[in-house]
Write a protein that binds this DNA or RNA. Structure first.
Lengths: 208, 208
DNA sequence: GTCAATGTTCTTGTATACAAGAATCACATT
DNA sequence: AATGTGATTCTTGTATACAAGAACATTGAC
């Protein structure tokens, strides 16, 4: 049996149906949903193929994410409510405490909270939805690069700066801080990938 | 027979299947695709309902579009190729000529070209894809507001400004121009909606 | 008269059977 | 030997049959 869910692999409907003991119909629906979210690619009359984003696409996605988050920050600085501001501070503090305890998982969770509060504080529900979507899609790669030496402390400082700018109503400062915060993640990803490539020969090639 | 594709209407699988002389299966697939693109909403075990974006959501979408286009412009100003620049100019000129002839359809088509060239010239394929997606989703509402008095001439001038900024490599100028270009569309939409509401009593209510 | 419970009907979700297009392999021809 | 053509097989796309859950109506009780 071939390894599963590896880049470029073809997902056979009947095989998957048998594997999960259901008929082809729900499998098809699930695959279509995956295709809509971009994780797999359907070629008409050919089948569906798992498709990890190429390295280049990943960097592009981080660039767009940086801009979306910057927009969230810019709007949030003007529109955030008192209650949301408190939640933002709480998340930032929880991040800090998690970092001091060296609890990466906890840091990760509170980091999520921090960003989602900002998305909603933008007051633009469509923007919040799009940001969450992309955030989720980049999740595994973001998580990966928390391993970079000293990244936790640096990331936390960036959160602090953003939170202060938002609290002060400094729209452009918040935007700048967030754009930078995400861009750095993209940059770190490049470093990780370079190392990964050195050790594993290949990065993440595009589909066959 | 009820009016079709009106806000909140339920789309019955068997009815649609009969209407287009196919079985329920392809109808279901089509409805799922529509749900993924956000044009309809599926309630589990209840059915799918047409769902026009609410007025507020529409404005939010235009705001995000403005930011995405601005990002495209900023990148394009730095990355555009000679060939793409020529196509951008050609589209702008075609817009101008269409306007002078008063050919709204032609203007509309060339306007599409203009923007799509910019998306691709950004050199960020993910950004281009997302921009195209949202652009398409806003299409009917953009088209609507070309009717605003004097909008065509104004829009054309904005295109000119953007094209010049891109040609000059002025990233921030291009970004500003595009953000403004789209924002104006959002503002005009508000005016149109206000009038629409005055004459028709209701705007576009959220689903039942 | 109103409310609740139960049964009927209607609609979606799932399984399976069938059709049509794509890939592959064999064989023939150049 | 290489390439093109045809047949076979495999896989997706579509149709239909069946099951299960939701809405609705009817009937009974308070």
């Amino acid at each position: 049996m071939a390894a599963e869910f590896v880049e470029g692999e073809r997902l056979d409907e009947v095989t998957l149906a048998a594997r999960f003991s259901v008929s082809r119909t729900p499998v098809r629906e699930a695959l279509h949903a995956l295709a809509a979210s971009g994780l797999v690619e359907t070629l008409p009359r050919r089948g569906v193929f798992v498709r990890y984003p190429s390295f280049i696409k990943l960097v592009e996605m981080f660039d767009v994410m940086a801009e979306l988050e910057a927009m969230c920050g810019r709007l949030a600085a003007r529109r955030i409510t008192e209650e949301e501001l408190e939640r933002l501070e709480a998340a930032a503090l929880a991040c800090e405490s998690a970092m001091e305890r060296g609890d990466a998982d906890e840091y990760y969770r509170e980091n999520e909270r921090f960003h989602h509060v900002l998305y909603h504080a933008s007051g633009n529900s469509f923007l919040a939805e799009q940001s969450s979507r992309l955030h989720k899609r980049l999740q595994p790669f973001r998580r990966l690069q928390l391993r970079v030496r000293g990244r936790l402390r640096q990331s936390m400082q960036e959160h602090r700066d953003v939170q202060k700018a938002v609290a002060a109503g400094d729209a452009e400062g918040a935007a700048r801080g967030l754009r930078r915060h995400i861009s750095i993640q993209g940059e770190n990803l490049k470093d990780l990938m370079a190392n990964f490539a050195r050790y594993h020969q290949r990065t993440m090639p595009q589909k066959p």
